[in-house]
Design a protein around this nucleic acid. Sequence first.
DNA 1: ACACAACCTGACCAAGCGGTCAAGAAAATT
DNA 2: AATTTTCTTGACCGCTTGGTCAGGTTGTGT
Lengths: 210, 210
Amino acid sequence: MTSQTRPSKRLETRRENERAILSAAEKVFAEAGFGGATMQLIADLAGLPKANLHYYFATKEDLYRRVVQDIFEIWLHAADSFDNAADPASGIGAYIDAKMEISRRHPNGSKVWASEVMHGAPVIQDYLEGTLRDWTEGRIAVIQGWIDAGKMAPISPRHLLYMLWATTQHYADFGHQVETLNNGKPLSDADWQMAKQQVKDIILRGIGVV
Amino acid sequence: MTSQTRPSKRLETRRENERAILSAAEKVFAEAGFGGATMQLIADLAGLPKANLHYYFATKEDLYRRVVQDIFEIWLHAADSFDNAADPASGIGAYIDAKMEISRRHPNGSKVWASEVMHGAPVIQDYLEGTLRDWTEGRIAVIQGWIDAGKMAPISPRHLLYMLWATTQHYADFGHQVETLNNGKPLSDADWQMAKQQVKDIILRGIGVV
DNA sequence: ACACAACCTGACCAAGCGGTCAAGAAAATT
DNA sequence: AATTTTCTTGACCGCTTGGTCAGGTTGTGT
């Protein structure tokens, strides 16, 4: 019985360890940057000896690359909210909601991404020139279509996208600053709700859809 | 003649060296992060032997602290554009212009600041809790005054400020990404003009002042 | 001219880094 | 039960790092 594909203890612990390492690495890379992070610190946080990290990930760069790639995937999936929307209010509104949720749930990932780009994207330059550029051009076309159809104000779609990215990611990348200005307390559920609403209010009115 | 306060060769070279070191440090810290930056790299870029750096700045952290403080000063001065404005359109418009200009002229400084905050502001936490918090509360009051006077839409001043910071600094912190999406070419004068105008267009309409 | 203080720097050091490896433990296969 | 494969780990290594320091050089006040 239960002859279903057993997880095979080997693969199971492998997955567990990889996840523990990636989770620890994301945090350490986010808090210390690539240069400031040490394999020892990641190992301690993951609860494994340092040598074991090098069994799963040959080099520090390999580990870092995986962390950045994973984030990029999550980040791109927020685009799904963008598509299948007939009008800008719902499409862009949903995109803001999705990006804000990512900032809340994956602040470390957002920081690693920001750090990578700030340092000249030495690891993911190909992603910027490939996937991201294609994605961007596609959304610009969608937004331009809305403008041409008279559904929103004639702003530059490109700069609107930058504003959306900047504003939503600010709550992750500059989360510490936001928290400090919130009297040192993390944002509550209501605070996040408020932030989301305010971003949508200003931007949607800014592009003339309310 | 010329008995005016002579610069005194000593102080002159001191100032020159300090400026060379700080300029080099800003660039290296921005490109590599605190952890990734090395005193040797900064020394080479400044054209001085490494030991000489330690004569002017005792430790790497001291040097870093000075870089961050200098940036904070520049950053705060952009607030001057905010004050002495009777209506939100000119006040916030001027603030956006000023912050965009800083992003263009001091991208490295902006990156160092961003990096510092992203890593939990280990060095400038007191600035966040003191000067920045006071500054923020003050501007929130100004904006709230405009709202109460019916001069703009009733949005949350706090989140408007976050949006302003995020959007304007995006062109510095994510300059590499912006450049890549601009076909790998740096933004031209016209591009910057366009960016400025678009940010002002969307935000000013977003807060209901156009 | 002299003496004193400020400045400069090549050589050096302890500490910590990423990464290696050999030998053993544990699981899977036969 | 034996064997092979995968996984685990303490000890170790070469290298780079931030920082030091003694001794020389340069500028300044007297």
